[in-house]
Design a protein around this nucleic acid. Structure first.
Lengths: 132, 132
DNA sequence: TTTGGAATTAGACTTAGTCTAATTATGGTT
DNA sequence: AACCATAATTAGACTAAGTCTAATTCCAAA
């Protein structure tokens, strides 16, 4: 419904490089990580272009920004709705695919008076490694 | 259970000032807001002390840090578990008191293998003002 | 092939927060 | 009261992350 079609082939080579860096990464990347890796593909790419491209690609729905306490913003190739767990000790971030009941989001809309665009549950705790 | 007792009267005057600023505020404050207001009470207080005090008070459980996408960290006098809604357009943050079913947090622990210390649902959308 | 808008670039700039080293305050002991 | 050890505070330099600006380059359509 209403979701605009994206023509990836029409992206500039810089945007294609940035997108492929995020898509090829096994984990979430910071803007700086993306910059480092994009330079391997396209040595002349600038820092600002990486930021611009990440914003553009996010606005187009081709990738997702994740904002978690403390550190820098991370970029995620997984664009469908999902949640995150963060380890308080080592900072590891894990994707979670939780079913949040409609009753919860309905209550949230109701209580806030907001029109929901997205929602996310964030769990903070200790990962299995950090618990010993 | 096991929650250590806090003796507020034993706080330094700087920490008391910082705490009272957060407690007297109607809304969430950034560290800079706190600094500005604390200076009214205690003109000699330094920026670093505000940061140190906020960290100390957070560690003692006397206030809560809230990290939301983009902007600076905000400080909240409300220390019990609760959720937040953020307006994508004006940045307004509203506290929500949602009941998150145990089944959801259990699924999150299960899927992540994390030991949960806290969790929060963040709703992003448009507040009633910004929807016109 | 010119031209106008969009994208890119380099680098200065800003914001938010941390770190360090020197100083000051506090509580316990004699 | 004087002394000591420890903790807290201070000023200001520093860092990290990201934004902004102005000049340049690219590209598609006339």
């Amino acid at each position: 419904m209403g979701r605009r079609e994206i023509d990836i082939s029409g992206l500039t080579k810089q945007r294609k490089a940035v997108l492929s860096v995020v898509r090829d990464a096994g984990e979430h990347l910071t803007a700086n990580d993306v910059f480092m890796r994009a330079r391997v593909i396209l040595p002349s790419i600038s820092f600002a272009t990486v930021y611009n491209s990440l914003r553009f690609l996010k606005d187009e729905g081709l990738l997702k920004e994740i904002h978690l306490g403390g550190g820098p913003v991370q970029y995620d190739k997984l664009t469908s709705r999902h949640d995150h767990a963060i380890c308080d000790s080592c900072g590891r971030v894990v994707d979670l695919h939780l079913e949040i009941p409609n009753s919860v989001t309905a209550a949230a809309e109701n209580a806030s008076g907001f029109r929901t665009k997205s929602f996310e549950l964030i769990l903070r705790g200790l990962c299995s490694d950090c618990r010993e």
